[in-house]
Amino acid sequence: MSLHDLPGAEIILPGLSDLRNGKSNTIGALLVAIAATRLTEAGLDIQKHHLSPEPELNLYACLQDEREDAYPYYNALLKRLNSFCNALELSYRYKPSNTALEPTLSKAICKS
């Protein structure tokens, strides 16, 4: 399974790319920062030196700048992030070997 097939990939994968490029304040990068530990434990290589120190607060502030009522969109993004993490964890956990996912992860991360 490719990372591009996971729910929420359209937000999370660009966030990973943003972090690699030093952008830590995009919606995607902030979502990655929120779940950095969980994503790392599931096999993704996260650029931790670019992570926002308070990603939840920064994400909400960013959304408030774009929308009149940020709360529903904020919750929807967190649910999308959770779906991505759940699917990633399941695909990582149920591989015959945890190393079997590594080529798929590195290809997907490089393509983002």
Rank of each mutant, 00 (worst) to 15 (best):
M1I: 06
M1Q: 12
S2T: 04
S2M: 05
S2G: 09
S2D: 07
L3D: 06
D5K: 15
D5L: 15
D5G: 13
D5T: 14
L6P: 14
L6I: 07
L6K: 02
P7M: 12
G8W: 04
E10W: 09
E10Q: 14
I11F: 10
I11D: 06
L13Q: 12
L13M: 15
L13G: 07
L13V: 12
P14S: 07
G15F: 00
G15L: 03
L16Y: 06
L16A: 04
S17L: 12
S17Y: 12
D18K: 12
L19M: 01
R20L: 01
R20D: 14
N21E: 07
G22T: 07
S24L: 02
S24T: 08
S24G: 15
N25L: 00
N25Q: 06
I27N: 00
I27W: 01
G28M: 05
A29I: 12
L31H: 02
L31F: 09
V32E: 01
A33C: 05
I34N: 02
A35M: 03
A35D: 15
A36E: 09
A36W: 04
T37I: 04
R38L: 08
L39Q: 05
L39P: 15
L39V: 09
L39H: 05
E41G: 08
E41P: 07
G43Y: 01
L44Q: 12
D45C: 05
Q47I: 11
K48G: 14
K48E: 15
H49A: 10
H49I: 11
H49V: 11
H50Y: 06
H50F: 08
L51P: 15
S52R: 02
P53M: 11
P53C: 05
E54M: 05
P55S: 03
P55A: 13
E56M: 10
L57C: 07
N58D: 15
N58Y: 08
L59A: 13
L59E: 13
L59H: 12
Y60M: 13
Y60W: 08
Y60T: 10
C62R: 11
C62T: 15
C62P: 03
L63R: 10
L63Y: 13
Q64P: 00
Q64S: 14
Q64I: 07
D65Y: 09
E66D: 13
E66R: 06
E68Q: 08
E68G: 01
D69N: 10
A70F: 14
A70D: 12
Y71G: 08
P72C: 07
P72A: 01
Y73G: 06
Y73F: 05
Y74T: 03
N75S: 00
A76V: 05
A76I: 02
A76Y: 04
L77D: 12
L78D: 12
K79N: 06
R80F: 01
R80K: 15
L81D: 02
L81R: 08
L81Q: 08
N82K: 11
F84D: 14
C85S: 03
C85Y: 00
C85H: 00
N86L: 08
A87F: 08
E89L: 09
L90I: 10
S91E: 07
S91P: 01
S91M: 13
Y92I: 02
K95G: 09
P96H: 08
S97D: 13
N98H: 11
N98I: 10
N98A: 11
T99V: 09
A100I: 01
L101W: 01
E102T: 15
P103V: 00
P103D: 00
P103E: 00
T104L: 03
L105C: 05
K107N: 10
A108Q: 11
A108M: 04
A108Y: 02
I109D: 06
K111W: 09
S112W: 07
